[in-house]
Design a protein around this nucleic acid. Sequence first.
DNA 1: AACTCGAGCGAAAACGTTTTCGTGTTAAAA
DNA 2: TTTTAACACGAAAACGTTTTCGCTCGAGTT
Lengths: 338, 338
Amino acid sequence: MKKKVTLKQIAKELDVSVSTVSKALRNSSEISLDTREKVQAFAKLYNYRPNNIAISLKNRKSKNIGVIIPEIVHHFFTMVISGIENVANSNGYNVIVCLSNESFAREVVNMEMLAHGSIDGFIMSLSKETQEKGDYHHLREVVNQGMPLVMFDRVADEIYCDKVVIDDAQAAYNAVNHLIATGCRKIAIITTEDHVSVGKLRTLGYQNALQDAGIPFNENLVVKVDGEEACEKAVHQLLKYQVVDGIFGVNELFAIIAMREALKRGFKVPEDIAVIGFTDGILSKYSNPPLSTVVQHGFEIGVMAGQMLIDKLEERETEDHYRTEVIKTSLELRESTR
Amino acid sequence: MKKKVTLKQIAKELDVSVSTVSKALRNSSEISLDTREKVQAFAKLYNYRPNNIAISLKNRKSKNIGVIIPEIVHHFFTMVISGIENVANSNGYNVIVCLSNESFAREVVNMEMLAHGSIDGFIMSLSKETQEKGDYHHLREVVNQGMPLVMFDRVADEIYCDKVVIDDAQAAYNAVNHLIATGCRKIAIITTEDHVSVGKLRTLGYQNALQDAGIPFNENLVVKVDGEEACEKAVHQLLKYQVVDGIFGVNELFAIIAMREALKRGFKVPEDIAVIGFTDGILSKYSNPPLSTVVQHGFEIGVMAGQMLIDKLEERETEDHYRTEVIKTSLELRESTR
DNA sequence: AACTCGAGCGAAAACGTTTTCGTGTTAAAA
DNA sequence: TTTTAACACGAAAACGTTTTCGCTCGAGTT
């Protein structure tokens, strides 16, 4: 078990100074060819690699990116991480992932943990609880300290920083519009409580699509739920008491559950009821029938966010100017719509 | 934009030495109560936090755990990460995630990147390519340097380190056995090429179960595929030319695809053909019919791996003794089996 | 008055680098 | 022979901590 070798040890062994070793390894012309070769050979022999921590301290940058997300067992978020990791890696950065588990407190402590030297910048998506509280002091703090921050998906309008979002309202509009275009008139929406920013926006898009098509808005067709069982029950009730020929689920799971309930009650999908979801995950692809969805392009979001952050870090960006990039969604039409 | 304040700055401002500030902040009795209070007040006012990097350098430990996995858009791996993150976080560690994307080269460079100071220990699962090549020099190197390593799921027998696995063969045995117990006799297995360690083991369990039940092994019923389309085609052929009344898929996707093909050819599941999968993911839960599976308890695997690593790091473990923990699987019986 | 002792603090080393600024030696130029 | 300049290298500072050791000053003891 040979421990890591340091410059100092090489220096001692070769009877030169630490600075000479350092320069020799970087092939500085300041050092004689002789010495350079000797040092490099020795270094290779002992498999010398500079200590990252020491370099970090010296350069005052860690080459680490902190990513804070609400959960990781989630198709969209993993796609985003994949994208971030991709650009991070090709720029020599590592990715430190922390999970808030949708909790405000954990979000705060994780940020605090990371903010003091461990990372050079943040990429994050807010926890539900944080959005509910509307307390963003921890974000303010890091941006005030001059640490670059890129938010994605669940963002806070009142924080000035780079952002990567999709046009939730427009995407929802397109989805509902497709339902309308294919003959649906009594379209229900399964959405979240209003404090989740994206749920709210998607609901807005739904309303706009109806309005533009001249279809009266029916309060009874909007179902707000939180969680799986609640969703199941609510859809059950919905189908029992309302006439519905189309369902727009604000996320993948809601759409899948709605479709399942519709099937269970004997409706044919898409003939009797067409269903469309949001967030193209693995479920949509393999459900029966395969679910039509709005695809968010999580990987591209991750790439964009990573790129924006790294631009800031390497100052390829003008200081103090924040962008909000909107990644285009698209419709993946499969067999749950006509 | 106020930059981070350091001990030195506090010292200068208060006209004391750096050491005094350091001691005062740790409430050392060496420092007068007066000075302590003054320093602490000032530190609080300026929101002082020690610089992690400096601490890391001093202590020669980073309080970071490196996790290298083949991919992250994958239910099982995210469950494991969740588990790791959980114990890491409650022990004051951060998790650095790197993806090998099933590539040997990326696995190597990622390990190299992390191994020099960035982390205190590794948790990893091998990439397919690495298993294929059987080249583990990068693992050897890190363990030789005295860096703790915990492998999980896709492990290398020839590397001496802590491991967390499931009993793949036994789990497969149980799954196939359940098929047999419920009346299946012509049981097919959809598996991977032999170089993937877990695929091989699961195939072994399948064979053993057949043997113990006195069912002759039929070469034509084992389908080895790599990738989704290949799987689809192979199952298609299988069902066309062979009589099958049970299918064991070596992972979730294979089982789902097999079930879909069976349904497509007009078989009833589970009446005509029973299907059971491996790895309980979201697909199994929401498929139609819901898929019976072997559940791997990824979260527990992550917790175990994290705990083992931290035990080593904090030396609560006797040096130089490596454990292999086997996390028990269980059968989640849903509606794809009788 | 000389001594001891402890309280309160600072200097310095250490962690592993990189980089700036000398400094001594040697060979070429005057 | 003296000056100059290039060459090859080393010392030291810096990044931000923690910790050991030593110093000074005043009060209490003989």
